[in-house]
Amino acid sequence: MLKALKKYEFEPDYATSPGATLLEVMESLEMTQKELAVRTGLTEQTLTRIFKGNQPISYETANRLELVTQVPAGMWNNLEAQYREQLAKLEERQRLDAEKTWLKTIPTKELMERGYLEANQDEVSLLRNVLSFFGVSSVHAWHAIWETPEVAARRSKCFDSQPGAAASWIRQGELQAHQIDCAPFHKSRFQQTLQEIRVLTCEGPGVFVPRMKELCAASGVAVALVREMKKVPWNGATKWLTPNKAMILLNLRGKGEDKFWFSFFHEACHVVKDKKKDLLINDGSDGDPREKQADAFAAETLIPSRFNNKISIFQTAHEVIDLADELGIAPGIVAGRYQFLTGNWHVFRNLIRKLEWRE
């Protein structure tokens, strides 16, 4: 049995004015332009402009045409609206055709694979789809959004070299975060929530992910989890979507639970301590004092620094597990701290749970 795999919509590259229909109606009524002018009270010059599509059919004109031709005014109004809409689409298509080279900066293939863009489109249609994904009407508007001082305030090297890929990853987080209902942001409540979330490090993703999202949403923070993208070497980002709603955006780069939780608390620090207007990106660099502050906050929240000397001389997995039990966190986080302090990245590696994406 044959079946259609895809529904294609016909998009004409021309626009037919309602004046063409009016000429056909006149012909069927055997009516001249002069007679129509007399019957409708319109000048012949006005009718000529309507025939050519240079003058729109107003509601008043549509009512007059209904009385003379017996064709409902609603039909004339609909024909006029469709004509103007098609003209606008043709003008937009011409404008987008001149901007389509910008598509080379956007990871369209990855976005198609993730279901954000439709496949098998011509370049102009694809460009329109991409602009819709970003919620802008033009490439100029895209630059205005993603090159504002708020974004440039925390400029990552990746943003300079791969702005399209970088913005695409953040935009996916925004779209996900917008779907999360949050209470108005409450700073002290969120700070208390962080202690509850710290305990969740002992749980598996099936437990900690929904609970973490729920707790953060109750404090005005939407947690978005978005797969890593090629050429975007970031662990996380923080952005205020509104004055009362923050987004913490995370991925599984590195895959270890220790890195994931460090990234979460790193971003949480930005929510608590940094300005709401900034987009802050965790790309592993340490040149920004805000990033150093966030690193210190994450490290101290997970494992107070007074335990570092003790951890650095651990010899057995039992020591790691015992301290993890004492601190109320996952053993993998203690193992990760040991690796960081000693540089022995292979030691206690089996204690660090790997996190993976599931469809």
Rank of each mutant, 00 (worst) to 15 (best):
L194N: 02
A246F: 04
P184E: 06
A98R: 15
I145L: 13
Q195G: 07
G332I: 04
L280I: 15
A141R: 11
M212K: 03
A153S: 14
I50R: 01
W169S: 05
A73N: 05
F265Q: 01
E203S: 12
G74I: 00
Y338W: 09
P149H: 03
K276N: 09
F10E: 08
R39Q: 14
N120I: 08
N350K: 13
E267Q: 10
I352K: 11
A166F: 14
K354N: 13
D325S: 11
W261E: 11
N308D: 15
F134W: 02
M31Y: 07
S263C: 14
V71H: 00
E291Y: 01
L90E: 05
Q191A: 13
R128C: 04
E30K: 14
I248A: 06
K109I: 10
S188L: 11
S285M: 14
K6S: 12
K230L: 12
F159N: 04
Q55C: 02
N120L: 13
Q176P: 00
T32N: 08
Q192N: 14
K310R: 15
E214V: 00
W357R: 07
I106R: 01
T108M: 04
F314I: 06
R349M: 01
G254Y: 09
T201H: 06
D274K: 15
D122K: 10
A153I: 04
I313T: 14
E9T: 08
G164N: 05
C202N: 12
H143R: 08
L103P: 02
T242E: 12
E319G: 13
Y14Q: 05
R39M: 13
D283C: 06
H266E: 12
Q191S: 12
F340Y: 15
V130Q: 08
G135W: 09
V272H: 08
G135C: 10
F51I: 02
S263P: 07
P149C: 07
D278F: 12
G74V: 02
L29H: 09
R84H: 02
S28T: 10
A166N: 10
G135I: 06
Q172E: 15
M112N: 04
A183P: 02
L111T: 00
V199A: 14
A335G: 03
Y14D: 03
G336R: 01
E91T: 06
A73L: 01
L22M: 07
K239E: 11
K109N: 10
D283V: 03
T48Y: 05
E147T: 06
I57W: 08
Y8H: 07
I321T: 14
T148N: 15
D295C: 01
K277E: 15
L327D: 07
A73M: 02
E30N: 13
P289A: 10
I329M: 01
G332Q: 06
A335L: 03
K104H: 05
L5C: 00
T69F: 11
R189T: 09
L29M: 13
N120H: 14
H270P: 09
V207N: 06
Y83T: 07
L117Y: 12
T16G: 00
F260Y: 15
R128E: 14
A224K: 06
G343S: 07
A37T: 06
P72A: 03
L87W: 02
D160S: 11
S161W: 10
S138F: 04
I352L: 09
